[in-house]
Design a protein around this nucleic acid. Structure first.
Lengths: 241, 241
DNA sequence: CTCATTAGAGAACACTGTTCTCGCTCAAGA
DNA sequence: TCTTGAGCGAGAACAGTGTTCTCTAATGAG
């Protein structure tokens, strides 16, 4: 199955990476790099013509690589998802397996660090979605990566998870959670996935506020604020100390 | 002091609301209404010329009322803040004072209902900020309204609040919270404001996910999911049952 | 070595936000 | 009452945008 990404970038099947195809994908990469730079300064309304000017290229030439501005933005979105997932993964993998809370914090901090370093790209994927973009199929997998990382930590905790008492699950909610677990061939308890989703929600809640400047004249100790929230979420999921 | 809003709308001082000034503000209102409609369909990239066409007006005529497209958007943003705060306030005021959890849920549900009914405007204020807009001074007051509503509920609970144990506050964080409390002449305990901020963060975290479609093929029972999260936050702040 | 595919140039079209000038209208001051 | 000036809208113009089309030159495959 050919992914949307490959269609967008019009990369050839990977049998024979001919020279033509190689310089083509290099050019695609360069276009995305320049576009990313523009994104960082001009916000979400990047101009194809400006990107083309930076590349000493006429605007219509870009259409050899991306069929539309939305397609270019979609490619950037997909790259951003991948980069964010990668940042979280490498941060987590640097912590010893048995340090559960360390892994938990590493995931959260990894996401935060990447988001603060790439606010425009973060805004592209976790801000208000613009109608045209965001092809679902290629973005769901990296988008769920953070959830899976957190869920894996909870799974690794096994029965050292503190019992979760408050606010029992209603039937339809439990059904949703069970379906999610089954879709991924998991065996996690619904209550635990529920708390993972709570923590996941909270992670991006704090991060949206911080990245989008809503904490600006409110909280000075941003890093401590973030850690505090994430530790609270670890407590709420019953992660052992 | 003349607010940015009044400057933007160029309303006269309210001494003599002359006929001229009245039809002027009516026209401003009509422009904003049409712009809001366009916002709902076309997303954040609304076109002045399209708005003008809907009003049987030439585009340059809009500049008699709003000095730029960003100014119009800013006016819409300010209106959205006010509408959201109003929705939360009226929802909360319909619940008997002594029903603390009822008031809590009413605030949260009020915000959610408004957000789902006006997703584009919600996205305008809680999505990724676009560089030009969002004049701070006129938006901070309505933006903090929801926090104040939640804080008032916690305050009304007095010492019926369950003791908050986990995750003690670090010194710089406590300093931030103390400053926030003092700025508003409050007497709340830092620990309690902290939990209010946690709940506030979580509220917009879930809402962003739901409004921006990140729960789409994940959770079916959206309303129950939302309530569940908000009740969990009420528990976390120690609100009595 | 030929030739079809490809990258890029350039013009064109339909838009956009914004500015300027020009008349017209109407309410207030003399 | 008449005059005048401010406000309103029209319309043209400018710079910029995304997108499409046609054309030319090169370049890799047969």
């Amino acid at each position: 199955m050919s992914s949307l990404y490959s269609i967008l970038c019009q990369t050839e099947p990977m049998s024979a990476p001919s020279l033509r195809a190689r310089v083509r994908s290099e050019m695609s990469q360069e276009i995305k790099d320049v576009a990313r730079r523009h994104l960082a300064t001009d916000g979400a309304n990047l101009s194809l013509r400006a990107v083309a000017r930076d590349l000493d290229i006429v605007a219509s030439a870009l259409y050899r690589y991306f069929p539309s501005r939305d397609a270019l933005l979609t490619a950037l979105i997909i790259d951003a998802y991948d980069a964010l997932a990668a940042a979280a993964t490498t941060a987590e993998s640097a912590v010893p397996r048995e340090d559960l809370r360390g892994r938990w914090l590493a995931v959260c901090r990894g996401v935060r660090t990447w988001a603060l370093a790439h606010p425009a790209e973060y805004g592209l994927i976790y801000g208000s979605p613009v109608p045209g973009y965001a092809a679902p199929q290629d973005t769901v997998e990296p988008a769920t990566k953070v959830i899976l990382l957190l869920a894996a930590i909870v799974t690794d905790a096994g029965d050292r998870i503190r019992s979760l008492t408050a606010s029992p699950l209603t039937a339809p909610l439990r059904a949703d959670l069970r379906r999610l677990i089954r879709e991924r061939q998991g065996t996690m308890l619904e209550e635990r996935l529920d708390r993972v989703l709570v923590a996941w929600t909270h992670l991006y809640g704090v991060l949206n506020f911080e990245v989008f400047g809503r904490l600006d004249e409110m909280i000075e100790a941003r890093a401590e604020y973030f850690d505090h929230h994430m530790i609270l979420m670890a407590d709420l999921t019953g992660l052992p100390a």
